[in-house]
Write a protein that binds this DNA or RNA. Structure first.
Length: 222
DNA sequence: GCGACAG
DNA sequence: ATCTTGTCGC
């Protein structure tokens, strides 16, 4: 699929912040996003324990059956330090290469990490949404910014993640008695639809299937 | 000022 | 992210 080249990859913190400030105004939070997506892609990155290599993985699933339609893994090198809030600049360059090698265009992109629920309201999922112009969802495994009450114990229970009075995401229980995931909007999808999609994509495990598959692939090829 | 901070 | 053993539960 085609990915827009809106900027060069920044090498420094100030450059990266400038890119975020420039692109954050382009984010579409109105959605509503696809009602019944046909193809859903998951993206994740795995890191080498011994050097600076990383593997970006994209797995496309048929939404109805969760069957794998296409897989792409691309290896690269870390070119940006881990700075909370600028996490996307580590993974995006190689992730974009992997997406460009996709022969199909997904209807929805599920990202490992945050979208709106981000210190500058522009996490990896928002950034990837702008570059691909696809609806994107951010799914985080741990809390980052904002606060929320613990949702009820049942699958499907959720509570709002708020920060300074504004709602930036939801803690969503995808599996009974299991730690919730943190869902936030990336681009071109509403928060309620994002949660509905995440729930449908995680019928069995805590982590939505597209991300689980991408995670497996990124570790296998490192 | 200090610590905490997606992966 | 990654380094790590056992353990509890389906």
């Amino acid at each position: 699929m085609r990915v827009r080249r809106l900027h060069d990859w920044p090498a420094t913190v100030p450059e990266a912040r400038a890119v975020q400030e420039e692109l954050r105004g382009l984010v579409d939070l109105a959605g509503p996003g696809p009602e019944e997506p046909e193809l859903v892609a998951g993206v994740d990155v795995g890191y080498s324990p011994e050097d600076d290599r990383l593997v970006a993985a994209v797995v496309v699933l048929r939404a109805g059956t969760l069957d794998v339609v296409e897989e792409v893994a691309v290896s690269g090198r870390v070119r940006f330090p881990y700075v909370p809030g600028l996490f996307a600049f580590r993974e995006l360059p190689t992730l974009v290469e992997a997406l460009e090698r996709l022969t199909v265009t997904p209807d929805l992109l599920v990202c490992d990490g945050y979208g709106l629920a981000h210190p500058y309201r522009f996490g990896l999922a928002c950034h990837l949404g702008i570059l691909t112009d696809l609806p994107t969802i951010g799914v985080g495994k741990t809390a980052f910014v904002g606060a929320c009450e613990p949702p009820g114990p049942e699958r499907g229970a959720w509570s709002a993640i708020t920060d300074g009075g504004e709602t930036i995401g939801r803690a969503l229980r995808t599996r009974r008695d299991t730690k919730p995931v943190h869902v936030s909007q990336g681009h071109r999808i509403s928060l309620s639809n994002a949660c509905r999609q995440v729930l449908e994509l995680a019928p069995r495990y805590r982590i939505p299937e597209p991300i689980r598959q991408a995670d497996r692939l990124s570790r296998r090829d490192i």
